[in-house]
Nucleic acid binder design. Structure first.
Length: 270
DNA sequence: GCGACAG
DNA sequence: ATCTTGTCGC
């Protein structure tokens, strides 16, 4: 190994075009950025389905949730899970857990390149096994248009699958003027009950997403943004209706099941 | 030294 | 993402 060329110990993900990046890293990011720009042309930000216009989402019967859980201390091996819940009952009607081997590293701003291939495969397995259970909307861990280049993992997955998609992040991605500063914390304190929201406005004035107090019991909001084929207003309304706890039930179930799968198959290695 | 950096 | 169980409180 050429130790002299390595940074001392800790890695530091930084913005593209940073001097500290190796030529390889820079080239990878440039390629990924070009791919995001290409896919972005196919992004649809508004409602496209009839059920989305209904006040009670009449016509919506299946909501999908996706998640990845990792083997402790292992960068590459993960369990990808796709669950489908009935709507509005939120009962699990389909579950698929699959061990996958991830090749791409996690780079902030490029999460999709690490996670999306496995998620698309999960959707394709469902298409093969029982297309009648295909969800009408997908809930994804991470952001949609609330992203450095307006194309987060939820957009990426939406465009590749053609399905309506919503991004749900548990932490604020601080991009284009959005900061977790005192003002933001004050806005959070002002969220009184489940369903309360405030908009996340970028410096240009565009609303990139919404902070949502997802249930009465949780003080910390979740961050909703448009993934694909769904307006922000519909997305927030739907997510709130899917929350028994802080994390929307489809994603929570995917999370629970993928972690259980890993515990079951990898008892205690590290 | 501390913060940022979705998962 | 992961490291981590019980415990204090409404």
């Amino acid at each position: 190994m050429a130790e002299g060329t390595q940074e001392s110990g800790t890695e530091k993900p930084r913005e593209e075009s940073d001097d500290s990046l190796s030529p390889e890293e820079r080239e990878l990011r440039a390629r990924w950025e070009r791919e995001q720009e290409q896919l972005k042309w196919r992004l649809v930000e508004g409602d496209t389905e009839e059920w989305q216009e209904e006040a009670t989402f009449a016509g919506l019967q299946r909501v999908g949730g996706l998640d990845l859980s990792f083997v402790k201390g292992d960068e590459a091996n993960a369990c990808a899970s796709l669950v489908v819940l009935s709507y509005p009952d939120l009962e699990v009607v389909y579950e698929d857990c699959c061990m996958v081997n991830l090749t791409a590293p996690y780079v902030a701003g490029f999460l999709a390149f690490r996670e999306v291939p496995s998620l698309v495969e999960a959707v394709e397995r469902l298409q093969d096994k029982d297309p009648s259970l295909m969800p009408q909307v997908l809930l994804v861990d991470g952001n949609g248009v609330l992203h450095h280049r307006g194309f987060g993992v939820a957009c990426h997955l939406g465009v590749l699958t053609g399905l309506p998609c919503i991004g749900i992040a548990k932490n604020l991605l601080q991009v284009s003027g959005l900061e977790n500063d005192e003002l933001h914390k004050e806005q959070i304190r002002n969220l009184q009950t489940g369903g309360d929201t405030f908009p996340l406005v970028e410096s240009s004035g565009k609303v990139l997403g919404m902070a949502l107090r997802s249930c009465d019991k949780s003080t910390k909001p979740i961050y909703i943004s448009v993934g694909h084929k769904m307006s922000l207003e519909s997305a927030v309304r739907l997510i709130h209706s899917c929350c028994r706890y802080r994390v929307p039930e489809p994603i929570r179930q995917a999370d629970i099941r993928s972690r259980a799968y890993i515990r079951q198959n990898f008892p205690h290695l590290s």
